[in-house]
């Protein structure tokens, strides 16, 4: 079973605050699912060569970096969803 410390380490990586009870639940639930994932050890993939295009059959999906769908209404709407803003900027806590 995953230790409390292991769960807290993943939670920190995932930026998730967990209650003590949630940590216990995660220890149990994640361990059960990770044990189930062990089944993949039984399948031989030594001959599989991974290339990104194999999965989705899409080779090149780039376009020019230009604004295609400019819409001022959308800009305002998006800005207004932020929890805090100043003028046309989204405000965050000081980082340094």
């Amino acid at each position: 079973m995953l230790s409390k410390e292991e769960v807290l380490k993943i939670a920190k990586l995932a930026r998730l605050e967990l209650s003590e009870k949630e940590v216990e639940t995660m220890q149990k639930d994640l361990s059960a699912v990770l044990d189930y994932f062990e089944i993949l050890k039984k399948i031989d993939t030594s001959n599989v060569k991974l290339e990104n295009k194999d999965i989705l059959d899409i080779e090149k999906i780039t376009r020019k970096d230009e604004v295609l769908f400019e819409n001022n209404k959308t800009n305002d709407w998006l800005l207004n969803q932020a929890s805090d803003k100043k003028d046309d900027y989204i405000k965050v806590k000081a980082i340094l």
Binding site: L78, A82, S83, I90, K93, A94, I95
Partner: peptide
């Protein structure tokens, strides 16, 4: 992330 949209707990010391 509680910044650009959605639920936000802003009453905290730092960004993390």
């Amino acid at each position: 992330d509680g910044i650009r949209y959605g639920f936000s707990k802003r009453d905290k010391e730092n960004l993390l």
